[in-house]
Design a binder for these strands. Structure first.
Lengths: 291, 291
DNA sequence: TCCTGCGATGCCGTTCGGGTATCGCAGCAT
DNA sequence: ATGCTGCGATACCCGAACGGCATCGCAGGA
């Protein structure tokens, strides 16, 4: 097999059509360059240059090989640049997981930060529930997760990503819909309430439970649902009232009115970033530093 | 700059994730392989492998570089194969010129032969008049020309490519059109005859002139045209009779009858291959040997 | 605590790559 | 014809590099 040094030698000679000048360009003397070319030709089993001692010309094979050689050198160049980008985190790939809810809240910011911090890197997105994200993080198939705060293993690290407020979602036909002042938890006492599933939406379930308990309020839970949009669909259909994260406002339902809610903690809905402590992906750390 | 040998070393280690086994695969011992990788990493300024003395793992940069390295090696492989094909004439490129007339007669055979003899080569076709072909051949931008026999310079070589008969083309309404027996030149004496241009179709012009002179026959030349298809169009319109190469039979004109012609030389229309004697394109010579 | 497996390191002989000097050849001037 | 000149090839030399052997150092398992 030939070497890349032989290729650069060949390209130089092919461009200069003059061994001595080509050698100067390569900052070496002519004899070793001659031998480089001879060795290249020998390793290919093909004559690339036709030299009389007055002139140097490319053979057809040489012409064909010239473009191959240039391509190889360009690619070698590219490989070193690319690998340095990956090593410094400017390039490479970051696999980001997000929950369906995060798609509305923090994901946009995250992607914006990624474009800023690691513009040459590839960001691979995967929608996964929190549990699957934690699993994927542990096994290394995910670099960064966006999840609701939850207990995490010792080899994972996390950081708050964003907070947002809760809004009341009430049917337009509902008496509360006309309210001018912000609602309070006690407004929901005895109301038919669309609740989050304690299994699939544990975070919201527990958040609302503790919220109502603190306010000594007891709505009537008529349904248990896991997705915000299904809850809103039911509100729209007049099945009850609900509390949803502020980002749900973007979903437009004709029969739903969003009302502010007064709480001791104005932004109780948290979203966290999680990653594996031992993750050595440089792009991940550059991204985390940006966030 | 790294070397290709370092790349093969890296790929082997990355695949085995085990220096000693990788070294065996490369038929060398482990220490030089370790050093190869170290040098590669140093020349990239990037750590590619994370080794404890119990295990070897790829860093993210290493993972990125692995595919680059594989691609480079594959391409180097491809370059050697390709250049050998060019050198043996199986690959490469042959620029073939042809006259409009040759497109009907010999070009099909030529392309068939090329597919047979140099299947991996690229055949570039250019339609040019004979004079331009000779010029392009001399300056090296054409490898092979298909032209009517003509005087050629000393640095060109030629060889007959094909011969074909002349046919009489007469309007269906013409008295000769009913003839059962083959025509002879004397049938054209005094006839209104569509002649080839002495400038743009010199070959045919001179061929017919000498043919009529030998038969002591004098048609009446009503028009001078350069292209066979224009001549046939005029025959179709009843403007006169003509002599055309047999390959023109493929052009269908409703009002034209083709009749065989009896001549001392049954196939007087020649087509020649021309190339530059000094042309060193191997594919050209493989092709010429096939023809 | 010892053993073992494995990558790194030290050292050595050979090879190889680059340098200098020189050759050989063709075109050119005289 | 003859010598000059320019240029690629060749001969030879030296230092760096490469591969091999022996050995070290370290971590995990017995």
């Amino acid at each position: 097999m030939f070497t890349l040094a032989q290729l650069t030698g060949f390209v130089a000679v092919a461009e200069e059509l003059h061994f001595t000048r080509a050698a100067e360009r390569l900052r070496m003397t002519q004899p070793p360059l001659s031998r480089q070319i001879q060795q290249l030709e020998q390793s290919l089993g093909v004559s690339l240059l036709e030299r009389t001692n007055r002139s140097v010309r490319l053979t057809p094979a040489g012409r064909a090989f010239l473009s191959e050689a240039r391509r190889l050198l360009r690619q070698a160049e590219h490989a070193t640049v690319a690998v340095r980008q990956v090593a410094t985190g400017r390039g490479g790939r970051v696999a980001v997981g997000f929950t369906a809810a995060a798609a509305h809240a923090g994901l946009g910011d995250l992607l914006g930060a990624a474009r800023e911090a690691i513009p040459d890197a590839e960001v691979v997105l995967r929608e996964l529930v929190t549990r699957d994200q934690l699993e994927a993080l542990a096994e290394g198939s995910l670099d960064l997760g966006m999840v609701r705060p939850t207990a995490i293993g010792p080899d994972l690290r996390s950081r708050p990503a964003s907070r947002e407020a809760l809004l009341a979602a009430v049917p337009l036909t509902h008496p509360l819909a006309g309210s001018e002042a912000p609602l309070t938890p006690s407004d929901f006492h005895g109301q038919e309430f669309l609740m989050y599933s304690p299994v699939e939406a544990r975070y919201f379930h527990e958040l609302l439970i503790s919220l109502f308990r603190a306010a000594r309020v007891a709505p009537v839970f008529t349904q248990y649902l896991s997705q915000v949009h299904s809850i809103l669909a039911l509100v729209d259909a007049g099945w009850g009232v609900a509390l949803v994260p502020e980002s749900a406002r973007r979903m437009r339902f004709a029969g739903v009115r969003f009302l502010p809610l007064e709480l001791p903690e104005p932004e109780p809905v948290e979203l966290a970033l999680v990653w594996r402590a031992a993750n050595d992906n440089p792009a991940l750390h550059v991204l985390l530093r940006q966030l």
